[in-house]
C-alpha cells in the first residue's frame, strides 16, 4: 500500500506554541484511522497540518507524495477537510452551497443531488437557507459538501458531532464505502465506543506526538 501521510519528527508551531512536537506517523491508502487524545493533545493540529493549513517547522512531512515543506497547497485538491466548524455560507440555500463547493473543488455540479441524498438531507431542505437549519442538518450539509468532492484523503474533526444516531450510522457507512474505494480517512473523535467500529486503526496523541498506535509494527 502506498503512503498517504508520512510524518517524521514533525514539529509545527501555532503562534509561539508548539502544537506538534516531533510527531511520527505513517498512514497508508485505504486505512481508516481514529485519532484519540485529551483536549489539546494535537488532534486538530495534526489534521490541519495534513491539510496544509499549519506549516511544518521541522521534520519531514509528505501528504499523497507532496512535500509539505516545499508546497503545502499542492495536495489540497485531493483532500476533504471537515473541522469543528461546518464551513457553510449561512445565507445560501442548501443546494446552492453544495453546488458551489462541488465547483470549487473541481467536482461536477451534477453530483450535488446524489451527495445530498447520500448524506440524508431531505429534498424539502434543498431550497432552505442554511442559517435556518438545525445543528445536525447543517453538519449533514457540510458532510455532503465533502462527499461531492470525492477526496482521496478525508480529514474529519469530530464528524459525528450534532448528528442523530441514524445519521451517525449513515456517516459510518459512507466512510467505510469511501475507504473500500481507496480513500484514506483520518478522523478525530472523543466518542470512541461509537466510532471504534469503523476504524481499522486507533492512534492516541498527547502533547503533540503519538503516544500509542494500534497499527504500529
Amino acid at each position: 500500500m502506498s503512503a498517504v501521510v508520512e510524518f517524521e519528527k514533525v514539529v509545527a508551531v501555532a503562534g509561539s506554541f508548539p502544537v506538534l512536537t516531533g510527531l511520527d506517523l505513517r498512514v497508508d491508502q485505504g486505512e481508516v484511522v481514529l485519532l484519540r487524545g485529551e483536549n489539546g493533545a494535537g488532534k486538530t493540529s495534526f489534521l490541519r497540518a495534513c491539510a496544509g493549513l499549519i506549516s511544518v517547522s521541522s521534520g519531514d512531512a509528505h501528504i499523497l507524495g507532496f512535500d509539505m515543506r516545499v508546497d503545502r497547497r499542492a495536495p489540497r485538491r485531493y483532500i476533504g477537510l471537515l473541522g469543528h466548524e461546518n464551513n457553510l455560507y449561512q445565507d445560501l440555500w442548501v443546494r446552492e452551497h453544495v453546488e458551489f463547493r462541488a465547483a470549487a473543488v473541481g467536482a461536477a455540479e451534477s453530483d450535488t443531488d446524489a451527495a445530498l441524498i447520500r448524506v440524508g438531507v431531505s429534498k424539502q431542505l434543498w431550497t432552505v437557507p442554511i442559517g435556518s437549519l438545525s445543528a445536525g442538518q447543517r453538519r449533514k450539509v457540510a458532510i455532503a459538501s465533502l462527499v461531492v468532492g470525492r477526496p482521496r484523503l478525508w480529514l474529519l474533526d469530530e464528524p459525528h458531532a450534532s448528528l442523530d444516531s441514524e445519521s451517525r450510522e449513515n456517516l459510518d457507512v459512507i466512510l467505510a464505502e469511501a475507504a473500500r474505494l481507496g480513500a484514506t480517512i483520518i478522523f478525530a473523535s472523543h466518542e470512541s465506543p461509537l466510532t471504534k467500529g469503523i476504524a481499522s486503526r486507533v492512534v492516541t496523541l498527547g502533547g503533540g506526538r503519538v503516544l500509542e498506535d494500534s497499527g504500529a509494527s
Binding site: 493549513l53 485538491r77 477537510l81 469543528h84 461546518n86 449561512q90 463547493r101 473543488v105
Partner: peptide
C-alpha cells in the same frame, strides 16, 4: 465577514480555485 463566518476561510483556502 461571510468568508470568516463558520470557518469558511479554511474552505476558501482548501478550494482548488
Amino acid at each position: 465577514d461571510v468568508e470568516t463566518d463558520d470557518g469558511n476561510m479554511d474552505a476558501f483556502r482548501m478550494s482548488v480555485i
